[in-house]
Design a protein around this nucleic acid. Structure first.
Lengths: 247, 247
DNA sequence: CGATGACTTGACGGAATTCAATTAGAGTGG
DNA sequence: CCACTCTAATTGAATTCCGTCAAGTCATCG
């Protein structure tokens, strides 16, 4: 088991998630205080960042890479309950134990703060507390959106919903009008998709094939997806065309 | 359609949810400021408190009664995404539109604040902001617990999980050791249970009958439930025996 | 007493899981 | 470069659980 490494360091001013993370509203002084107590960690794809039930002695933000939040039942059934993308916050101020497993799905860089100093700083810095509240409310909305997906959508709609989320996120990062074709790489294996969607990986595979056959998506290799017409995909997802979405 | 009524008034000091709601950490001065801007509303069972998409001009706490938070797809499929019990907070500071329908399931009393004054007060009152963050984090945990239920549990486990939650809540309010039999009234119709669990009402009914036949629960009438042995119910729910739970 | 709403029960069909076999692709080493 | 291995993914066949449709019960209320 390979340990996380600590060799990186970035100035907050140069940080790629500066304007989206928990520090987004901080002024120069506040950033300096954060700079004092922060440190970086990197994890390799597949490494577990935090085990459910373990004591958490740090909180932090995802700087780059993707991680998942999952719950597991005794008999091994697992459900992903969150997808952590750059700028997302990990950990809960005011609680010691971790409630979920956090697993790096790609190589991952985290900006960490020891919990106690961070909590103290948060007490003195309303900008941080306020931004964290805002982010937590967004996550709660995302979780509730996902409850509709898990509870009421068919397998085909679930797959389309997931693809739509990933497609949207990528579209927001790259240029091109809303009617343009969207191309992206799935950051998740079929198994991880299944864990997110409350399906088996076989069902995921079958529905991916079906969406491909029906021309809703095109596939090159297993992971490279092209969406020729986003509105058709949204239709398949069963959403009213706008949809307030994850992250 | 009968309008909500406004005729109640309670002093914050005498309020039954004083120590659990968003005002829980407020000192006397802060309570006075809240007292200034608050007002009560009551709704009858069945009334819709807020329509999804409507402009929200107030936020507030449930004082007594039960309400639900639901999402609906165009074709009518609905999923409950939250159960609002006394002390729970409704509304989102910093956002205008409501994201979900809020429906009173019993007669309901709410302690309301007009949104703008509340937001201003929150900016000046870290105790309120901090408590709201804490409550939102709890709700996020509850939503994620529920994602496991929706995504991975069988119909029987879902029913058992819901009964366990209601039983626990009632047990925490009334005396009796943890091994004692627990007796309570279901606050939800079969249909509301189905909406919560991502099932049909027929399946709910069948599984209730099955749990009754197997002696996991006893039923008098449709709603009055006795749990002879809580650990058996927990077993049926598929949880590891402790479980961090809703509310 | 009929009407209404909440709930139960049965029969059937279909969607998703389970079990199992096969294929594709990436990486290793002779 | 070509076997060989390992993991990820696809595909098929059988099974099962849950949803759909339909009928019927029970309690409450005007």
């Amino acid at each position: 088991m390979n340990a996380p490494s600590f060799n990186v360091h970035i100035k907050c001013g140069d940080c790629p998630i500066r304007h989206r993370a928990v520090c987004a509203r901080c002024d120069t002084d506040e950033l300096e205080a954060l700079e004092e107590i922060k440190y970086y960690r990197t994890y390799e794809a597949g490494q577990t960042v935090i085990w459910s039930g373990d004591k958490m002695n740090f909180v932090g933000s995802v700087v780059s890479g993707i991680a998942t939040l999952t719950q597991t039942m005794e008999d091994g059934r697992t459900q992903m309950v969150g997808l952590l993308l750059p700028s997302d916050f990990v950990g809960r101020p005011g609680r010691d134990g971790a409630a979920y497993d956090v697993v790096a799905k790609t190589d991952l860089t985290m900006c960490c703060f020891r919990k106690k100093p961070f909590e103290d700083l948060m007490g003195r810095t309303p900008h941080i507390a306020h931004r964290l509240l805002e982010m937590t409310l967004d996550e709660l909305d995302a979780a509730r959106e996902w409850m509709l997906v898990l509870g009421r959508k068919t397998a085909r709609e679930k797959i389309a919903s997931l693809l739509a989320i990933v497609a949207r996120r990528d579209a927001s990062l790259s240029p091109g009008g809303p009617t343009d074709r969207i191309v992206f790489d799935l950051p998740l294996t079929r198994e991880a998709m299944a864990d997110y969607l409350g399906l088996t990986l076989e069902t995921v595979s079958r529905q991916m094939s079906a969406l491909k056959k029906d021309g809703v998506i095109q596939l090159e290799g297993k992971r490279h997806v092209t969406v020729p017409d986003m509105s058709i995909l949204m239709d398949e997802a069963g959403d009213d065309s706008d949809g307030g979405y994850l992250v």
